[in-house]
Every structure is written in structure tokens, then in C-alpha cells.
Nucleic acid binder design. Sequence first.
RNA 1: GCUCCCUUCGUCUAGGGGUUAGGACGCCAGGUUUUCAUCCUGGUAACAGGGGUUCGAAUCCCCUAGGGAGUACCA
Length: 521
Amino acid sequence: MLTFAAQNKDFMTPTVRVRFAPSPTGPLHMGGVRTALYNYLFARQHGGTMILRIEDTDQTRYVPGAEDYIMEALAWCGIHFDESPANGGPHAPYRQSERKALYKQFSDRLIQSGHAYYAFDTPEELEALRKAAEARKETFIYNAATRKTLRNSLNMSAEEVGALIAEGTPFVVRFKIPEHSVVEMDDLIRGRVVVKTETLDDKVLFKSDGMPTYHLANIVDDHLMEITHVIRGEEWLPSLPLHVLLYQAFGWEAPQFAHLPLLLRPDGNGKLSKRDGDRLGFPVFPLAWTDPFTGEKSSGYREAGYYPVAFVNMLALLGWNAGTEQEIFSMDELVKAFSLERVSKSGARFDPAKTRWFNQQYLLKRSEEQLAEELRIVLNNKGIKAADDKLVPICRLMKERVPFVHEIYDEGRFFFEAPQSYDEQVVKKRWKEESATQMLQLAAVLEKVAEFEPVALDALLQQFIADNGLNTGAVMNALRLLLVGTSKGPHLSEIMWIIGREETLKRISAGIAHLSQITQN
RNA sequence: GCUCCCUUCGUCUAGGGGUUAGGACGCCAGGUUUUCAUCCUGGUAACAGGGGUUCGAAUCCCCUAGGGAGUACCA
């Protein structure tokens, strides 16, 4: 039995465990959503576990509501966690602030093993050193080259150190980067990365406020939580050597790493930021957010009318592709098709136009009944009353013309109200001298037709045009102008049927009155 | 400045020594339509530059340039 187990690959391969570890300092950026998504896809594909860990070790950056926002946003996207602050799990708590007591013992362990040391340099002293180095066009690095000249336990007797700490002198714990060596790392996306330790600095692991820094907490928790794969943004790549060294210092096996390419702004240079969204008119956050301190509002994809599946689909394709020509993927399909090997290395520019296209693809796939239900909500929010039985046909006629449900209303206002104005260009082109007379004649016929529904109306229109020897385009466009106010929109007989006989006749006479006034002047 | 990462149409990308360098978005044109949109057809448009290696480089190597990230007692 033991032999079998040892030879069986499934037994040898630990279950995949990944985590998404945001800092609750504000709304979750769409880049963060993509990181969470890739983690989720990877976990699900391998039958593994997806963990949410809140990295709130910086007490000064706490933002009320941010953690709830993160969970709500990811739930909206269909990204669910097996272990999280909300669900609990075998490694609870999942909030680093609640794990505070844990980190000190690990920090102490590194001090005892000689991998870390106490440092008493004040922030001001360090700042001065950095400035001075900068003035010489050099970079100050707290490492083997400088640590011997600084105020730390490496240069003090045990008694001195003990006394300082006993006095309550603020201190930090720094990692002692090994001298003259090379760190070799294998990234699942980037391959081998090699760095000389001379370029690394003795990062602070434990802050003077008694909290660990990201670096320590992240390694300790990833180890304790048995994380097998760390999938995170490329901005972490520069600290990968430190993290690898930390695992070595603890004598722990490091997880595998995958650093994802960044999301770049649609124009110009740099990574996607909130400002770009404001400037170019698209959301950068999944959900709308109001900053609790400044009251500043940010728009969200949900509120903008995007389907979460469309948003997720778009995000999935920004930096990854299946290697086929398929572009529309359900979450299940993404789970099956995803692979870290096919994640690209270079940053991906976000494209708002293609994002709209994705939404349109999903809108097109929805049934008219579903769309009618969604439209009803939009109309309710706007306080617009509409006959329930007309919502389905309206959606049938409009679904191929808009990428968003709310645009069914925006682009189809004529279903709900008479034109407020008449498009000047169209009036000029379509409203002829004889139009008023023709429309009056047509109105008379419409008044009498038995069945006021599309098939009968089409027949009637054709008959009317034939009987009077008129031009189809001229009649239809003039009529459309009266009913819609412009030259756009679905089939006219459908519009007439939906708004009804009474409204149709009302719009014809009102339109004629208005237009003859205008054209006379 | 220093360290690391990256570089195919405007954008997302396929391609991994021999391809008419493919697809999608966008844009343009034509067709369909009473209009607009959808849809269909077609078009526009790319291997950053320079050196190697090779019979042959978009593909491998080097340099340059450009872009990005990091450089905190933030994550």
C-alpha cells in the first residue's frame, strides 16, 4: 500500500493551494480582479483550493469598507473562495492583523539563526543616507556594504542590544542578505531569473509598531497555509529574490511562482490607473466605490451595465489566450482551457472598445425574456412606466443594436415617448413638400385598419404606397421621422404595433404640425 | 541613477528555424435592409534597429533603442 502510494503521482503531488492576497486599502482594481481570476482558474482546474487572505499589516492604510468591497466584487465576478475571512478554514484566521502574534516568533527565529538582526536606525537617519547617496548619483543599499557602519545589533554587544530594547528604543528587524552569492529563481511564466545578492537590500521584516511587513507575513502565511503556487502581479518580481532567500533561511520549501504581466493604460505610457478611467470614460473598478474619507466616487463595471461574465471573459483574455481562435469563454470553459504556460510575458494594454464588444456578445446570447426582465429594472430605476407585455418585443427588436441593456432604452426612447425634437439633417433630407399630405392620407388609412399589428401593417403600407404610386423610401422615411424623430430604429410596423394605434396617429399629427411650422419659416 | 522584466498590425494576440506572418477588436469599402444597427464579403495594417549563428531567421545568441516595474518601518 505504501509502495503504491509512493508511486502514484496523485499521492506525490500535493493538492494545489493558491491564494489571492489583497490589501484592503481601497476598491479592488481590475488588474487585481484578473490576478484573483487567474488564481481561481488555476485552482479549479487542478481541483485545488482557493484562499482569500487579507493583508492588512499596515494599520495606517486601513480603509473602512474595502474588505467588503473586495469580497462583493469577486463574488459578482463569480470568483469564490474555499477559505477566507468570511468562510473560515483550517488555517484561520485569514486576516493578517488577526495573526499578529504569530509573526514575532518567526522573526525571532531568524534572529536566533543569524538570518536577521535588530536595527535601531531612525527613519530620518536612513532618509539622510539615501539623500546623500543620491547626491553622489549612487543608491543607498542597506546590505553587506553598509550595515557595518549602521546602528544595528550586528555592531553591538548582546548587552547593548538588550539595554536598548529594554529602554523601549524603537527597532525593526532586518533580513541579513547573504554576501557574494547569487539567487536563482524559476518563474512559471518568465523562466529562470538570476540575481546577485549585492543588489538586494536588508529589507525590514518586522516594523517598530510590532507588525510584520508584507515580506515576512507573506512568506510565513504562505508556508503555514501550505500554498503551492504564488500567482501575483509582476510588480512583485523585484522582491522575489528576497522571498526565495527567506524560504531558504527558514528551511522551508518555496512554492512555485508565477508573475503576471501588468495591465497598461489604453493610451500613452504606464500602468492602468483610476485617472485613465476618469479621463477616457471607462471604469477601472468592478463595482462603484465612494471613498469614505474624501467622498470621491469611482464608477464600476457592474453599475455601467456590464455582465460579470463579459467582464471576466475580457479580463481572462488580457494576457492569456487558449492558443485557439476561441474568444468567448464561460467560466467553466476558462477553467478547462486556462494554463499559466500560455500567459504572456509582456504587459497588456486595456481596450475599452473591445470590452464593450465582449458585453455585446453576451447580450446577444441572452433570451428576449431575460433581457425584458433586465430592461424592466432599468426602466424602474428611471421611473419610466411601460406596458409589461411590450418589453419582450422591444428587446427582440433592440438586442442586436446595443451592447448594453440600458441602451435599449437610450436607443429606443421612441418606444416610451413621442419625439421631443426632429433630427434636422433627416428633416432636410426626408421631409418634402408633399410629405404632409401623404402622411395625412396614410393616417386616415391607419385609423381604419382592423388589425393593428406588424403583418397587417406591412401589407397596408405596401398597399398604400402602390395605390398612390409613391416611392417606398420616401413614405417610410417620412413616417419614421414622425414616429421616431430621426432615421434610425427597427422595422416601422413593429414600432407602430408596440406604441399602438392611438399613439401612432398622435405622433403623425403632432409631427406634421411641428414640421410644417418649421419648414414654412 | 541602480536592479529586474518585456518588445509581432493602432489594440489584444497566434506563431518556437523554411508560413502568401493567421485570428479578434477598431477603422474603411461593398452587399443585405424602407432607415439605423445586426449580419455577410472584402480591405487597411505588424515581426523596434543593428550585428551574429544557419543553406535559411519573426522564431536562437549578443548589442543598442524603447517600454514597464521595483528601488519605504506600503502592499
